[in-house]
Design a protein around this nucleic acid. Structure first.
Lengths: 151, 151
DNA sequence: ATAAAACCTCAAGTAAGGTTGAGGTAAAGC
DNA sequence: GCTTTACCTCAACCTTACTTGAGGTTTTAT
């Protein structure tokens, strides 16, 4: 029987609601760490539970694993991260989330104002530029890609 | 020289701000249509410009190509879609966008508290109990062990 | 002691949304 | 007429985030 500070991969998976294969994958990607017992099986300290939960939370914000990894790399590795450490991460992510929300709100008003009312055919539509006048000269239809937060 | 109601793929690509390969891909997926000229080259009617722009707009909302295809399939195919037709699509997408914005706002308001204080382990944590179905970014719902994730 | 459950590695597969390249044809410009 | 640009098909590849499966070992339970 392993004690609570010496978790098996199955325990971690169950308690975090992820599959064992996900933990293998995260370890391979450098997002979490483990050591091995005498029989070559992975063991984790409790710390990993929070890491995995934070990874999942950040994914909901839309942060990629690569960026999550970078953020986790800023945590201290000489001691267990404390409340302040986690707070610093979440503050950054909250700001990204705010930017994303702002973008989506702008997009929503474009949908309302442009697609909804039919002005898609007009040259000043932010989503779609007119085809007639701009056809031979300008760059043509200008999509929102330029300012996209998401893409 | 092709006239304006008889667009080449290059023209469509340039005016919509996408690559030629993207148009091939969309056609293969049934999102747009074309006919062929004598030399087997694709030709499009102007209609396609709006379709592609709407596809791009919907993608920014977070709609998958499969769902966009379904939505586009509700457009009339006996006539060019009019204002009312596009309105129906955009209204649905706007509602999805609103739901998504609401979800992200809820997520934002709980992000610092959850990550910082450790309530990730609790059954009332908003991050894990919000409508995960709306979290179309990132993987789906994560069902945590209600009793003991972190402790 | 033995069987079942859990774990291991490594390769391959999945899904979305495209992109890239090879080998060849068509259209446009001078 | 010749050359460059544009277009064609088909297959393979890319990225993200994992999952699945085969074949084999370790732990745990009875």
């Amino acid at each position: 029987m392993v004690d609570d500070a010496n978790l098996t991969i199955g325990k971690v998976a169950k308690r975090c609601g992820v599959k064992v294969s996900t933990l293998h994958f995260y370890e391979e990607k450098g997002l979490i760490r483990s050591w091995r017992n005498q029989g070559n099986q992975r063991r984790y300290k409790k710390d990993v539970l929070r890491r995995v939960s934070v990874i999942k939370a950040a994914q909901k914000v839309g942060i990629s694993l690569a960026d999550i990894k970078k953020a986790l790399a800023t945590l201290p590795n000489n001691r267990t991260p404390d409340k302040e450490d986690w707070l610093a991460l979440s503050t950054n992510w909250r700001d990204e989330l705010t930017a994303k929300i702002n973008y989506l709100e702008k997009l929503r008003s474009s949908l309302n104002g442009c697609i909804g009312c039919g002005c898609l055919s007009m040259s000043n539509c932010p989503i779609y530029n007119a085809d007639d006048k701009l056809a031979s000269e300008g760059p043509g239809a200008v999509l929102l890609d330029r300012n996209s937060v998401l893409n």
